[in-house]
Amino acid sequence: MVNFGFLLGHYNYWAVVVLFLIGLYAMIVKKNLIKKFMGLNIMDTSIFLFYISMGDVEGGVSPIIAHGGGSDVIYVNPLPSVLILTAIVVAISTTALALSLIIKIYEEYGTLDSDRLVELM
């Protein structure tokens, strides 16, 4: 018996899974190096979303202690966001490096098609 309530209640995770798989699919199937890398970025993004949604508390507010904030206020968990900030920086550096490599590859080989590149190697 499929528990639809469970499935639908975790829609955010399903979105993450779908995005992750799209990214993985693109990485494996696409021939163009840039598209491969976009797949990787989609995958990364899905993980970021995963982190953020797992830190979220229903009805929570952003974890900034405003003036007069009482103890009854529910804050969302800030730690996953902080972590993901770091991960984003990592992703940016990876992206920057990958793009510059892609530019170099295009300069050297004149193509970004992975099959052609295998032939040219």
Binding site: T94, A98, K104, I105, Y109, M121
Partner: peptide, 11 residues
């Protein structure tokens, strides 16, 4: 070749 190897490694 090194650039391509690096890209593969990176991915």
């Amino acid at each position: 070749v090194a650039i391509l190897a690096s890209y593969k490694y990176l991915l």
